[in-house]
Design a protein around this nucleic acid. Structure first.
Lengths: 137, 137, 137, 137
DNA sequence: GTGGTCTAGACCACG
DNA sequence: GTGGTCTAGACCACA
């Protein structure tokens, strides 16, 4: 699967570019567009595709490597490391994740999104991941 | 309701302090600890309580004001503007919120948190908000 | 304690400069020259002292942060996080450490350093740490 | 003694492959699995066994040759040069070795491994070498 | 004044 | 051809 060509970045966003790259790749893996062992574009290639500096891509890949999402091999570049359904999360991840989720849920609540509505939207997005997964495979 | 005394900030976190203040206040409102019209602590008061610069608190309040969560009067200071169940979210909010939620959900999926587990945790946190709400009123 | 002025770097070494900075700081902490909460020089300051780029120092500090050795605070810069005697090592550290130690011990053995000699030298270096610790405090 | 079949390499490790080969061979010699004059597998043979480039193996052997661990004859290939107990280390080796050991010991100290614990682990690994040595001969 | 981000370009290590 | 290191300088976010 050719990852990288279908990423959409907003170079003017306040969200750092390297963070956007990381987010898009995590989403792509969740959607099942890339599975364990699949290669990512080379840092310089991806940088050229988006007209950004390769160091920026490098930082995104390094972040993904620290998170255990990809492996970086000197020869073949970066490849997907984790399969979406490869066991329970690392201890420590869930706590941090719940903290961030709590803020996001509180925000929805404060802005008038009902609890049922929120849960429905989350479930929809999650099954959206699985639906794409079935299609692209 | 005395908001502010029970805020917990981590001055060494990588999350900006003004963001933490904003997050804690949003959470408190979601939990129903403050309703429309309730006053927030003065910026100088809150800054003194935590030994931080009052400009930092100012920035947090300004962010909340931009988000439509509080109103700032010259005389009476900052007060809660919205009630958690006072109507549907502003147009534009939901799109942005879903973008951020999608990243968080993808992250959970990639790290091996099952969709059912995720939905269950979200629902639990949301009903946690409502439970506290009932108690504190 | 003024850390940084007494670091010695070899800019021509094959060992990356950022790695040398990291190593020297770890050694200084082991020797007790800096304890929990002590500040490190600012990245730009340390870079200027050695005539190197601040990005290089940045990378060293980032490495130390990932290892849990320092905290990086937006206001006050980097400070020592771990105290040399603050509890057992993280799980996973020891395995990796033993792998590296095994190679070093094998190397000594192959080059004719006797096991007793090796153990004696290690013990001497370790008590050297403690001795300095006692002196500088 | 058939060296090479029991080497375990991690092609995805951040440690260069040639370095891993060198490390494994040094460990094998320390364990007494090979003594002075014993042949190493041919570079092409070893490369084929692991599906790696034979230049990589070449680099590892060249490194070992520079370190004085093996001799390379045009005809008979690479053979072990030193016996683990064939005399004192070369001048210069010990200084360099102690520098690297100091870093490793400092790291253990900083991460909370006690000095006694460290010495005990080192002694255990060293006698592990000698135990295997006795068995395999 | 602190660290963080991004760009740009050079050189090296690895395989 | 791949990633890693280092340099250099600009601009921004945070407190």
């Amino acid at each position: 699967m050719l990852l990288g060509v279908n990423l959409t970045l907003d170079l003017d966003s306040e969200v750092p570019i390297y963070q956007q790259i990381r987010d898009r790749i995590v989403e792509a893996i969740a959607r099942g567009e890339a599975e364990e062992g699949d290669p990512l574009p080379s840092t310089r290639q991806l940088a050229a595709d988006f007209g950004i500096n390769f160091h920026t891509v490098n930082k995104a890949y390094d972040l993904l490597r620290q998170e255990g999402v990809i492996r970086v091999n000197r020869k073949s570049g970066a490849v997907i490391r984790r399969d979406p359904r490869s066991g329970p999360p690392e201890p420590g991840f869930t706590d941090d994740w719940e903290d961030r989720m709590r803020v996001l849920l509180a925000e929805a609540t404060v802005h008038g999104l009902g609890g049922d509505d929120v849960v429905r939207r989350c479930a929809a997005m999650l099954s959206g991941f699985r639906a794409e997964e079935r299609t692209t495979r």
